[in-house]
Design a protein around this nucleic acid. Structure first.
Lengths: 215, 215
DNA sequence: TGTACATCAGTGAACGCGCGTTCACTGATGTAC
DNA sequence: TGTACATCAGTGAACGCGCGTTCACTGATGTAC
């Protein structure tokens, strides 16, 4: 990833040594960051609102003021996550050649970047049932992310369900396996080598050059 | 899938109308089946041992006799799951042409079959942290499943980390997305058409014909 | 065939725990005048 | 600048709940003789 993603933390400079003020300053952002850390440590299966509050250093009733309930917090986190997921793809595209095929590969690299950098969040987006996916904000963020990939495939000359499926599946499969720590022989490669290999693999899924299959 | 997988249920013929006997007959298998159903209904995130026992129609203390604790049950289910996951691949291979490339495609089809037929179990194998993956039986079953794919890639002429990663990622990505109900335009296709498309997509990941890349 | 006994399988009450949520409250901030 | 007041943000005690696990028990089965 070229720019490291905006971590949802670091609210107030917080005058070290001073007594913690009654008001936090930016508790909402701090809770989202704590929630992501909590997911990383315990997984979605062991996630608890009380632990998040404890991690953020506030009483366990405080999150209710910002998110209503536990699902509200996870829904907000997922929405933010989808936006950053899309941003990770855009960051790669910005530094890639303008050729549509290379732009598509870049999007795939961003997809994988995000999964490897923030595996807990990646899993929340794709594999959890706890966020409320009918929420308007989350729904919009998720749809934007899906649509981006579809658009990229179309721009690269893909015009079939198969092209769309192949590209999405290849990026997603790499991302999920790498986020889970599988594909060990790839994980042990130096970063640059691994990245080149991921790009090569993604190219295999591209719409056949010049071909115009229907689906 | 050619043969439907052996569902972990249906222990005793159970003489309908008769009072339920004190001894179940095959409670271990019934609990594994109930656990899978429970995962399908509630997801790993909401899984509870008490609900499993209730579903199987026994007291909530009964599972302890067979599995020790909740993790023991999920570990046993995951081990059984990996064996059936491998069997799903073998079933496809058995009816595919002997050509190594086609065998590899068949393995991928089995991979996807399993994920679509039993998504809850698929997610337990790949995305849960609740089973004890250091358990000897589970570890062996999981390793056998990984190794099979690696062997198939090698037999098909793949000799690089990239070949292995590409094939695995493509099968896994399709499986995960389809299990999650994504790739809607593929899901709405008639079964045969969809299957042919999945096979086509899997072929994109195959080691380039005759090529012998190093990695 | 019958009886005694060991073993196994499942029960149901009880425990302590962490959870999400609610609620009256208090501290802090901002604004109208 | 000062004061009154509304609003906001976070507290801490309390609640009821479902959970996993333990335990003494009872019903059922199988086996030795």
């Amino acid at each position: 990833m070229t720019d490291s993603p905006p971590k949802l933390r670091d609210a107030p400079p917080a005058d070290p040594g001073a007594a913690r003020p009654y008001h936090h300053g930016d508790l909402r952002a701090a809770l989202l960051a704590a929630a992501e850390d909590e997911l990383a440590d315990r997984g979605v299966e062991g996630f608890s609102l009380r632990q998040v509050a404890k991690r953020a250093g506030v009483s366990h009733a405080a999150p209710a003021h910002h998110f209503g309930d536990a699902q509200g917090l996870l829904t907000a986190l997922a929405a933010e996550g989808f936006r950053q997921f899309l941003a990770a793809q855009a960051a790669r595209e910005a530094v890639a050649p303008p050729d549509p095929g290379e732009q598509l590969v870049a999007a795939g690299l961003g997809y994988v970047d995000f999964a490897m950098t923030r595996p807990a969040l990646f899993r929340l987006l794709w594999q959890s049932e706890r966020p409320d996916f009918t929420d308007a904000d989350l729904g919009q963020a998720a749809r934007a992310a899906f649509q981006h990939l579809v658009d990229q495939v179309a721009a690269a000359g893909g015009d079939s369900t198969a092209d769309e499926g192949a590209v999405w599946a290849m990026a997603h499969g790499l991302a999920d396996l790498l986020a889970a720590g599988r594909l060990e022989s790839m994980l042990t490669l130096p970063g640059e080598t691994r990245e080149a290999m991921i790009a090569d693999i993604l190219r295999r899924a591209l719409p056949p050059r010049g071909a115009s299959a229907t689906g």
